[in-house]
Amino acid sequence: MTEQRSNLAGHFPAADGIRGLAVLVVLVAHALVMFIPATRPYLGGTGKIGVWLFFVLSAFLLTNKFLKKGINIKSVSEYFLGRFLRILPLFFIASAFYFYMGYYNTETLKNVLAFQQGFAHLWTIPVEFKFYFMLPIFLIAFQAIKKRFGVFSVAFLAILITIAFRYFYPVSLLQENSIETRWYISSFIVGIILSYILRNLNIPPRKYGFYILALLFLILLIIPSFCKLITGTVIVPNLATSYLSISIVWAIFIYFSLLDTGVTSSILSSSLMRKIGNHSFSTYLAHWFVLTQLAKKYTDSIPMMLLSIVASLLLGAIIYFVFEKNIETFRHRVQKVMASPSK
């Protein structure tokens, strides 16, 4: 935990584990509804819970890097190049693969590659990628107001932005799996504010396991079917439009997890969870293929469902070592060159 607290501007060991948790949530949710069709009316869409965690964590980590390096032409150029190399090559490979395997036609492939159309789980990639262009703009505004009025003014401005987006883009008009980032700005804003809070509030590290478990239980209560089973009623009727409330809970979860010195931090910082987190992008892109192929042949088979989850993780690891790791090595080399002082 000392490493995490002394490295608030850098890398958080538990962050990789949190990313691993996010992809496991998506995997388990998708596997359940594909292999056990009877669960679809009750668990359909629950994979989005993991997606919101991805959104919040991504905004948090990217903001943290900017706040460490500062916002200038050099850091922004390095950031954009890094995001392009991080996302696009693997996304293009995955999109081409699904086209080759007959999941969609040439016209759909063109639209998917151009971020004009989503496909299955791939709808989240355009959402997050478009946010990358907005992040520096948000941070320039936040840093300017922080310099003049203090850190609490940043939270106030973030609330105003969130209210504005919710007003102009009400969740009642949200289409399922929309690729338009504007609907999910509030989730990313939550991640940005989390970075400011963690850097400016001097909360001591200690065991937060009880709070973390309580937050995970609260996440479960947001799932309509689970909530009705436990309480007899439904608190949140539509999971797809509950991204703001889920994002806030996830942000608190991340906050306590990064400060925790107990079992939770040990689990999230473990070698297994960090590896799953490191492979999460490859796993996320590939898991749909594994699940759909096996679910067609082994419907209602729990053992095959569990096997499909393991197979997805293994395929994600293979793709990581064959493609993603090499792309990442190249990306870090380029960013290192860009970050080095000019002679």
Rank of each mutant, 00 (worst) to 15 (best):
K343C: 12
L314P: 07
M34S: 12
R182M: 09
S153I: 11
L8F: 13
T283W: 01
S257W: 03
V322E: 02
L313F: 10
P224I: 08
I222N: 02
W288T: 11
L53P: 03
H11P: 01
P89I: 01
A240G: 08
F330P: 10
G45A: 05
F321V: 06
S342F: 14
T2Y: 05
F97I: 00
V263K: 02
S266M: 09
F323Q: 02
F156Y: 08
E78T: 15
L8A: 02
I161E: 02
H121G: 08
I140L: 00
G45S: 00
L314A: 04
L229A: 01
I140D: 11
Y211G: 03
R331Y: 05
T292Y: 13
L139I: 10
A114F: 06
L291E: 00
M338Y: 04
E176P: 06
Q116H: 12
E176R: 06
H287L: 15
G232I: 01
L272R: 15
L173F: 14
V249H: 01
F142N: 12
G102S: 06
R199F: 03
L213R: 06
I276C: 11
I254Q: 03
F55T: 07
I197S: 08
K69A: 10
Y104E: 00
E324H: 02
W288V: 10
A22L: 13
K110A: 13
L109M: 13
N72G: 10
S282F: 04
F217A: 12
L21F: 08
V127N: 09
L315T: 06
L174S: 09
H11E: 08
Y167H: 11
T231N: 10
F131H: 05
R182D: 07
L221M: 10
L291F: 11
L135S: 08
A295Y: 01
R206T: 13
R83H: 12
S269V: 07
A22C: 09
L109G: 02
R206E: 09
L174E: 14
A214R: 04
S265N: 07
A164T: 15
L109K: 03
F142I: 08
M305H: 01
P41F: 12
A251L: 06
A295M: 09
F115R: 00
G70D: 11
L139C: 02
S282I: 00
R206K: 14
L198A: 11
F55H: 06
S282Y: 03
E78C: 12
I36V: 12
A286Q: 07
G191R: 00
M273V: 05
W250S: 08
G118A: 03
L244I: 03
P341I: 01
L285H: 01
F226V: 15
P136E: 05
F119V: 10
F330Y: 11
L239N: 13
G82V: 06
E180V: 15
S225M: 13
R40Y: 14
P303A: 00
L160Q: 15
G118P: 02
E107S: 15
I140W: 12
I309F: 01
A9W: 13
Y98V: 05
C227D: 08
R166V: 13
F80A: 06
Y103L: 07
